[in-house]
Design a protein around this nucleic acid. Structure first.
Lengths: 335, 335
DNA sequence: CGCTCCAATGTAATCGAATTCATCGATAAC
DNA sequence: GTTATCGATGAATTCGATTACATTGGAGCG
């Protein structure tokens, strides 16, 4: 591969001029620029990334860690991230942490080695190494959280109001006349689950139905949806409605409902969360909470770019609008 | 951030020794190593990636381009890639090309700038820049193709026997007694579609049913599944079975079938392709062709690592086993 | 005509780690 | 006791691009 020296020699100019042709073309005379570009094409020159990065201390990369790429919710957020990043001239380094702390730490090290200019994490944990960086540099550390919001982390973030969204789901179900409602949460360690659960509880109390509430703890997977919903359905005083904290668990819930010879929504109403793109093609079409997935991706990148450009000084925790999408999986309970 | 010089000074040794502590620990005496490591921890030193990369000409990264990450089939393959890459000390740079040539070229340039040691592309197109590299360096170019196989590209690859898999699907349908079969393909520009179509045609001819075959061209999306299946169902001489070249299109097909008041599998049998993890949770559970998604990811990384390590000299086009998974969406046609 | 100023370009230092070659001291061999 | 050998470490070069600073030549002005 040709280097900048080769191009300079070929074009009969200095390396500085060649460099300027790329980074500040208006500083160089048109005929010179042409000469250089010809040499560039003749040699098939492409600037060496490592050299450039070493000199400028910039990588033009954003590291994004995600608990599970195969989850359609996250892949939609990532699409948004990629889109916004690319538009700003950054590319995306993707890390699937598989919910494992060891992997999260591995990617944290990559970031510390300066393999990326900024870090976006879509989970709820911040590895110690990064927490130290945040403690040291404050809100100007180029680390941003997406989808979740944990005030203690002291990083900017973009997310929906999970508590309110969950309360709205419960309002919808109680409004239809349901009394006994079963809820399948995600792991309660994540704010995404605990916030939603808080919304569920407050709505239940407001409606005077707290004692008829049944809670099961899932892990956002289809399989846990099958299992936990199954348990809720098999208890005495079967609920007439199930609220799962993810669409995937709701898919599992549908299976559990069918396995018991029940019908959704006739016997059991079902609500999911996220509005992944498959939700409207399930049968019955799933009532769920739409998260602005791409928009979360865009916002999170915007927050990060503001930090990188030195434009932002204070933390920003952005709440984006969600929407309860009522489809065919919810109905009034049978008389 | 501390540099290797800082560590050397702190530990009272030369930079060479510090460097050796990391890259060749057995060349340095234990007490020295300890001294260095203490300094490393005291300063929180982490080698600068760009500097290392500039010197060694290696990035320890693999660039993976994929037509669409939000497609569960691809995200499963990517998981396999990530797993194998990480195990070998590489990290994954992910590029979502969204089926757009412009983006494919953008990532091709990244590769040429040496931002990654190797490239895995999961689509069917190889940008010109890369084709030139392959032409120049031959089979030792660290570029590998996954999922698809186009002999003309002259790169190693891992994939299933799409033609045979499609033929097996048709055998299954004809075996159940179906005569009029509708097929929804993907874009025929990709071998993945054209190979499967070849399998469909040969099976149809073998069974003497070629004239009862109806072909519609989709684009692998749910929406195109709804649309194309709809058209097939509305034609005179409605097929009794539909074979979609992806599970997502089959989800769309289910919707089209329901929209017309028909029942799957009673009125229409349905077969998908890929066996994404949602396939078994659809209702009815989807009969489909299982691709060894993670394994494709593993193999493709293995092929690439062989090239990078100089172990392989010739092209390798690896065919992995697929499996027809018969579930509830296929049945004998009504009498 | 001589001086200043500026635009265009060149020279050379620099980024941080890896690595070649040199050095030093200790041990082994004769 | 001298010298070859080897193991551990250091000094200095290198990777390829960016950029501060230096240089050159021509335009503009008095």
């Amino acid at each position: 591969m040709a280097t900048i020296q080769d191009v300079a020699r070929e074009a009969g100019v200095s390396t500085a001029t060649v460099s300027r042709v790329f980074s500040a073309p208006d500083l160089v005379l048109e005929p010179t620029r042409q000469k250089v570009m010809e040499a560039v094409h003749r040699l098939g020159y492409e600037p060496n990334f490592a050299a450039k990065s070493l000199r400028t201390l910039r990588t033009e990369k954003i590291l994004v860690t995600v608990p599970d790429i195969s989850n359609p919710f996250f892949s939609a957020v990532i699409r948004g991230v990629e889109e916004a990043a690319l538009a700003a001239g950054y590319s995306v380094l993707l890390g699937d942490t598989r919910h494992e702390e060891a992997r999260e730490e591995q990617y944290a090290l990559m970031f510390r080695r300066k393999e990326a200019d900024g870090l976006i994490f879509l989970g709820h944990r911040l590895p110690d190494i990064l927490a130290e960086m945040v403690a040291a540099k404050g809100p100007r550390t180029p680390i941003v959280n997406g989808c979740e919001f944990r005030p203690g982390l002291a990083v900017s973030s973009a997310h929906i109001d999970n508590e309110r969204a969950a309360a709205e789901v419960m309002d919808h179900l109680y409004g239809l006349g349901h009394v006994r409602v079963g809820v399948v949460t995600g792991p309660l360690a994540s704010p995404i689950s605990s916030d939603r659960l808080a919304g569920v509880l407050s709505a239940a109390q407001r409606h005077g139905r707290a004692s008829a509430l049944r809670i099961a703890i899932g892990d956002f997977s289809i399989e846990s949806g099958v299992r936990q919903t199954g348990e809720l359905l098999d208890e005495p005083g079967r609920p007439t409605a199930i609220f799962c904290f993810s669409d995937e668990m709701a898919m599992g819930a549908m299976e559990a409902i069918r396995q018991r010879g029940l019908d959704c929504p006739r016997d059991i109403s079902l609500v999911g969360f996220d509005d992944i793109r498959f939700a409207q093609y399930l049968h019955p079409q799933l009532t769920t909470v739409r998260q602005p997935k791409e928009q979360i991706g865009h916002e999170v990148v915007r927050l990060l770019l503001d930090i990188l450009a030195g434009r932002s000084t204070a933390l920003q925790n952005i709440t984006l609008p969600h929407q309860l999408v009522v489809r065919n999986s919810t109905a009034a309970p049978q008389a």
